[in-house]
Structures are given as C-alpha cells and as structure tokens.
Design a protein around this nucleic acid. Sequence first.
DNA 1: TAGTGGTCTAGACCACGGG
DNA 2: CCGTGGTCTAGACCACTAT
Lengths: 253, 253
Amino acid sequence: MIDRVSGVPAYRQVASDLRNKIQAGQYAAGDKLPSERQLIVDYGVSRITIREAIGLLRAEGIVTAEHGKGLYVRAGVSVVRLSRSRLSRAARQDNQAFFLGDAEANAFKPTVQTTVRIEEAGLEHADALGIEPGSPVLVRDRVMSADGVVVQLATSRLPRDLTEGTQIEQGDTGAGGIHARLEEAGVVLHHHRESVATRMPTAEEAVLLQLPPGVPVLAVRRTTYDTTGRAVEVNDMTLVGNRYELVYDIPAD
Amino acid sequence: MIDRVSGVPAYRQVASDLRNKIQAGQYAAGDKLPSERQLIVDYGVSRITIREAIGLLRAEGIVTAEHGKGLYVRAGVSVVRLSRSRLSRAARQDNQAFFLGDAEANAFKPTVQTTVRIEEAGLEHADALGIEPGSPVLVRDRVMSADGVVVQLATSRLPRDLTEGTQIEQGDTGAGGIHARLEEAGVVLHHHRESVATRMPTAEEAVLLQLPPGVPVLAVRRTTYDTTGRAVEVNDMTLVGNRYELVYDIPAD
DNA sequence: TAGTGGTCTAGACCACGGG
DNA sequence: CCGTGGTCTAGACCACTAT
C-alpha cells in the first residue's frame, strides 16, 4: 500500500489514501474509520506514522478522534447564514437580539451570558473609537450558546459618556438593544462597517468555544458610526468558523 | 520545568510555556527558538514530546519550522484590506481588475494566470445560477499572485448563453472586466451578494497557495444579479486567511 | 474485560542549510 | 562538515468507552 521509493513520506501517503476514500464516499460523514492498530496492519507502518497521518486529517478538519471509541469522519455541521444587511433601523436589533432572532429562524435554544464593566481605553480601542487612550469605555462581554454549545463570543465597547445613566450599562439592554437605546439618547446612527478576518483560535477561545482541532474562527469587528461620523460602538465578534456564513448584499451602483 | 503530577500532558506544558514566552515578548516575531535538541535538554522530555508541543504551536500559526535552519516565531504578515463596497458601476472592476488596483494601492507586483473553459453545470452551480443542471457554463479560473506568492484563487461561472461571442470568453476580458462586457451586452447589474465562510485549506489549496500549517482560508462566494433578479455570475474566491481582511459598509437604515 | 485513542520513551537515518 | 528539522521504528503505560 505504501510506496517506499517514491520519496513521498509514508504518513502523507496514508493521509492521501484515507482522504481519497473519504472523498470518494467509501467512508461517509459520521462513519467510523479503522482503528489505529488496524491501520498499522493495513498500511504496514508504525503507530507514530499512522498517528501523524491522522493528525493531518484532523488538522484539515475532516476527521475527529473520540477517546476510547475510534476515529470518525467529521459530520457536516449545519451552517447558519447570517444576513448582515439586516442591521437597519426597521429591523432594529443589537447583536444579542440578532442572535435571538437567528435562533428562532434556525430552531435552536439560545442562551446568552452577559457581563458589563468599565475600563480605560487601550491604544487599539481608543483608535477604533476615535477617543483619547485612557478614556473610560463601557465594555459588554457576551458568550452566546446554541443548545448549550458556545458558538459566538462578542465584546462591545462604547465611550462611557454615551452610555452613562442608560440601560446600556445594564445586563439587559431592553427591546432593540444597544442601538435603540443610543438613538433614544439622541445619537442618530448612520452606518456600520464590518471587517471580516479569519485565524486559528487562541488557546482560550478553543476552550470556550469547545473547538476541535482544525476549525478556524471568523473574527468580525463591527464599528457603528453616527451621522456626525463619530464611532459610537466597536463590537468584536468571534464565530465558530464551520458553523457560520456571513452574507452581505452590495448594490451594483 | 515539567510538572509530572499535574495530569497536564507534558507536551501541552511545553507548548504553554513557549507560547507564554512568545506572548511576553521573550521571543519576538521572527526570532529563532531553541532547537528541538536544546528543548529536549531544557524541558527534560523526549524528542517526540517536544515535536508534539511544537506541532501545537504550528497549528496555531504562531511558530514556523525551516528545515535545516530552525524554529521561528512567525512574523506578522501585512494585511490587505479589501473594501467590498466598491463593486459599483462607477468603480467598475471585476475581481481581477480589483486585484490589480489593490496591487497598486499596496505596492506589490501582481500577476494573474487565467484559464477559460466550458463545462456542464453541476447541481451546486446550476442551483446558484438558477439554471438547469447540465446546461453549458463558461468557467474562468484565475490564480492571482503578489510578488510571486499566490494569494488568491478565483473561479467565475456564467451561463454560456450570456457569454457566447463576447470578450468574456477570452483570457483578457478588457477594461472593466466581465461586468462591463455584460452590461455592454444588455445585462443591467443590480446587486452582488457575498457569502463569507472560513475553513482549513484542502490539500490542493495548501500546495497552490503555499500555505504553512495553521493558516485557514476565507471562502467567498460572490453572486451577481441583474435587474430581473437573475443570477448572471457566481464567483468562488479563496483567499489566504492571514493576508486578507474584508470590509463591508452597511447602512443603518 | 477488551478495544480504543492519548501520551511517552530512546533510539535511528535522512534531507536541508550554512559555514 | 555539523547542526537543523523531517521521518520512522518498536515498543510501553494510561484513560476512556462499551459490553
């Protein structure tokens, strides 16, 4: 099974062979692969070599290992499409409300843990909000779960002078969320700017989001501006990469 | 250095220790880490254990290995911001022209390889284009490089009946690209819909994009609609995750 | 109890890079 | 040439899952 003279490392040959079998449907999503010990016999290589091959497939996100059970072809996860063009005043909702509406549309049980605190703006966030470093900012940290599984982290930061005395500083911001409260306070929102990047999770995110190896995250920073061009909120969101798809509509002219 | 009774695997302890030192600035971006053999001595564990620890850091994308040279803290790459709200008719540019303009703005030397072919629509693309499976589609494959490094793959698909006899079926689509040629042919574009997801690269993408382990890709599907609501183009783009950031502007109302 | 993956060891030889 | 990471071996014991 393994070509010893090709120059291609044995573990890559094993990985390719298994990958091909998976893609050809010989092993379907959710199927169990042969055990490591069986693969040792099948391919005639050592256990370390097999484990390195499996390691590749796990890093690619197409195989998962379950301790004491076996190796499985990763089942496709249901992807949630988030339409980002629905941040309009008419469909008023902050990210939390967004998430709750999304839950309804996709039939999962949502839970949100919120913590609120005040901190001094660091260089990065001061720059993003256009305020002086060291100025007080209100920070809202949210951990969002679907059916008990954490799927999204979000941290909003607003200049404290906009939020003092408003419901924004409470755990529950009320109907319409942060944005509705801001407009009640006289801030007229003009537009949002979303910046989307991807990266592998940090060690802490991997724990919080219960991420298996080989699943990247989407890092979205949404900055909200009012009609005077001032940034009134910076929301940093981290989404499990294999569960979300962000949809944007762009006019052609 | 290693706590043998904590229950935390040795390789994780080694990885955490190195990660902390990197984040604390003890090893800066581009710095060389101690060699594997040195780490064996430093931590008092076997080479396999050290390699497993390094493997974690590589999967996280914070360390790279250079054969014959050593281990290095991955240097931050310059991120290219792509403003996606500039697909307007005024700033007419197909993705290739987009890429060329982007190159100018970011001072890198762009090259684009294009191949054109005709295929029968599969189920997925037929669905995306709203045509019958098996209908002929024009496929434009593009490999885009910056300073010789492949940074983006793009595959456009259009119903053949829209492109027959136009310059769209040539390698060079001319000024303004695909979209300008479509409008010349009487197709009035209305809007684009971009769907953004992230995943680990396939084995082929990893080779084409020369991706080191631990770097995910952004998968963007841009569908362009005309004023009759018909999908006229589906463009599947694959972007190197640690080099791109997509920026979208969303009106507040 | 049996089988699974998780961790770990002490070696070996190879291929690459730079002096 | 020597030091580097890359690949590979033949074991070992542990923790977890299921029967």
